[in-house]
Design a protein around this nucleic acid. Structure first.
Lengths: 157, 157
DNA sequence: GCTTGACCTCAAGTTAAGTTGAGCTTGTAG
DNA sequence: CTACAAGCTCAACTTAACTTGAGGTCAAGC
């Protein structure tokens, strides 16, 4: 086949749609890897494109870089990941997505009834008090609803 | 008639479940309002509880404080909002939620097929390229998928 | 062989959404 | 009337996820 065609940061940036600085950042966080030329410039294998694509997709559904990093770390370090490797990842995230969708629906369905009524006291409102993710812990700011680890499924396609 | 039972920050904090510092913060952002006693202490009307409840609910589904602020600003300034006032809000958000859910489902359904295949090039993948919310604009960090706003802008690397 | 653009590193800035702490005032219970 | 819990303000710190900038290197074209 064609030569392995290594990519420069600029090329990866262009093809993946993320800024060069973001790629540096991802690399510093261990989400992607590169090796260096004799002149200390980064060179990426082609699978970096898929990694970056996945990073972006996952981010869009609210998965943090830290979680993405953990997931990506499960990919084989040495070889280019196979389809099965990727599928493991996607399966794990699919569960998270299912959960998130269910959560959102619960919220949506409860909202119209709840928001205008008197039930929004923190103790009584079914919307507020589901206690699903009250685990807002630690210090500092946080904004996202973390994907809950325990898979308590309550779907409704 | 009945005394208006104004609430102190501490009381609001306790009943709403948010920290006093957060209430100060919301007030500074214009999301809630208070008046002061002769001794410069905050006093809140009871409707602040609902406002705060809504702030929290909205945040949980990923609406930013800025957007919440805009929405809340549509409520009447002078009087205590009626049920109809609140319904207007909830309806608007329900639409946003519907959209978000649809988006998430699209992602979920596309993920398993897409993630392991070769289609994740930014140009071709249906997952990546739906262009729904490519409006990542401005500077600085951002993380959440913003609810679709009436702006869409092209972005250059 | 020089100029130009792509790279490199590292530090500091940015936004969101708050929290934490210092230093000072209020209000209430004993 | 005096503790002391609650409030107040304001500044600085926190996390996440990057971007921007300064100052210096590498590579390709003319």
């Amino acid at each position: 086949m064609a030569p392995v065609t290594e990519l420069t940061v600029g090329q990866v940036a262009m093809r993946s749609g993320v800024a060069v600085s973001a790629l540096h950042f991802y690399e510093a966080r261990g989400l992607i890897r590169s090796h260096r030329t004799s002149g200390n410039q980064r060179r990426y294998g082609r699978d970096v494109l898929r990694r970056v694509a996945i990073i972006k997709v996952a981010q869009e559904v609210g998965i943090s870089l830290a979680e993405i990093g953990t997931a990506l770390a499960s990919l084989p370090e040495g070889r280019t990941p196979t389809r099965d490797d990727w599928n493991l990842l996607s399966t794990a995230w699919r569960d998270g997505l299912d959960h998130k969708i269910a959560q959102l629906k619960k919220l949506r369905d409860g909202l119209t009834d709840c928001i205008g009524c008197g039930c929004m006291s923190i103790d009584k409102c079914p919307l507020r008090n589901k206690g699903d993710r009250l685990a807002r812990e630690g210090t500092g700011a946080r904004r996202l609803v973390a994907l809950p680890s325990p898979r308590s499924r309550g779907e409704g396609a």
